Simulated scan of single mutants.
Amino acid sequence: MMARPSLPLHQIQAFDAAARHLSFTRAARELNVLGPAVGRQVAQLEADLGVSLFLRTKPRLTLTDEGAQLARAVAAGFEALHQGLAELRDRSGQAALVVNAAIGFTSYYLLPRMGAFQSRHPEIALQIVTRDQNPDYDPATCDLLVTFGTAGLEGMVSRRVIPERLVAVCTPAVLGGRGPLGRAELAAERLLHLSAESHFDDWQRYFEGSGVTPPSPPRHDRFHSFMVHNRAVQNGMGIGLSWRPFMDDQLESGALVLAATHECRTTRGYYCNVTPRGAGKPGAETFMTWLCEADRAPSPAADRSPRHP
């Protein structure tokens, strides 16, 4: 059998972290290495591939088209690797708890806190399944299910993880040096909308009680995917709505700013549900308790010295 060419795994890992954070410094912090090390690894990967993966812009990096293509491939590869490892653990009797959640919640809330859980409970193995990428995934085959709404799922033990706190965010360049906008001023800006059923009227919720009606968005300002919507915000296409504490890290870094000081709190939120399959597993209750209390503890950002007000 022909030998498979070796992969520059350290370089790929550094690129993956930098692509997710759009920052060499924050990627280095995640990987527990010095900041310049990530930049060097990415530069070596670019030299090997013969393409530029990032534009070294400030205050954050910008993925080139080639970088975005590689980021998608690396994310898919890591997901397949995690899936394969989880399957092997299952076969060896070390069955992992399967947690089903939306990719936005997973990326912006769950994963940044997973290190704290794994440090506290190394005996509990977890497999995270993002249903956005698995539309046919059967929730009955998972142990815990994170949902969004006004309550948990009927017939399951449920606890609220975080309440809904909507904030308007954008890049500093979109405001162009202006201070936070009032809601009347905000309505005149380019507003980016989520068209998913549970979020298509989020801007109406945000403006409720202000006497201001947001305009209907043109088709090119509507996004069905939360991740694509956030990428549009990060690329400076306009002002979008997101959730605290999802965006806290980017607000603290200065990559994004609050377009307005108003924060909309609703009766909705994210809930963790223990499915019938997970009901008999002590690790499921442990994970749910931790997840619902994780935001009360210092966040990953709070453990670092402050860099921005």
Results as ranks from 00 to 15, higher is better:
L85E: 15
I12V: 15
Y206M: 07
D136W: 13
G177P: 07
G209S: 09
E185V: 14
A187G: 09
E197C: 02
P276I: 04
L97I: 14
A259T: 02
D201K: 09
A96Y: 01
P298W: 00
V228T: 09
V74R: 07
H10I: 07
E285V: 10
A96W: 05
R205G: 07
D221Y: 11
L291R: 01
M247W: 02
R4I: 08
A125E: 15
K281I: 13
D90C: 09
L192D: 02
E66D: 12
N235H: 12
Q13F: 07
G67R: 01
P8K: 03
F15K: 04
G84E: 14
G149E: 06
A101V: 15
D136L: 15
Q83W: 09
L81G: 05
G269I: 10
S253Q: 11
Q11I: 02
V274R: 07
L144T: 03
D90P: 00
C292Y: 04
L53Q: 04
G209R: 06
N230S: 02
A80N: 10
Q44D: 14
L186G: 13
G211W: 12
A102H: 11
V99Q: 00
V146K: 03
P5Q: 06
L191R: 06
F226Y: 06
V274P: 05
A140R: 15
R60N: 03
G179S: 13
A80S: 14
P59T: 03
H199A: 10
S107G: 01
G93V: 09
L70C: 05
M2P: 06
G240T: 13
T267D: 15
A3L: 07
R244Y: 14
L49T: 08
H121C: 02
F223N: 04
L111G: 00
Q118H: 11
E66C: 08
R205E: 14
A43G: 01
A301T: 04
S210I: 05
Q234W: 04
T130D: 08
G115L: 06
L145G: 01
R113W: 11
H10Q: 11
P8G: 00
Q234I: 04
A71N: 08
L63E: 10
D248I: 10
G283I: 06
S198K: 14
A43P: 00
P298E: 03
A294Y: 00
L181N: 08
A260T: 14
F78D: 04
A28M: 01
D303L: 13
I124M: 11
S305C: 02
T267F: 01
L81A: 15
D138F: 10
A18C: 02
G77Y: 06
A27Y: 02
L145D: 11
E208A: 15
T130K: 07
A76N: 13
P217C: 05
V157L: 08
T64A: 04
A302Q: 10
A187D: 09
R89E: 15
L61G: 02
P59S: 05
E87S: 11
S23D: 02
G115D: 13
R183H: 13
S198H: 13
T106G: 03
W290A: 05
P180K: 09
L291M: 15
F105Y: 13
E285M: 09
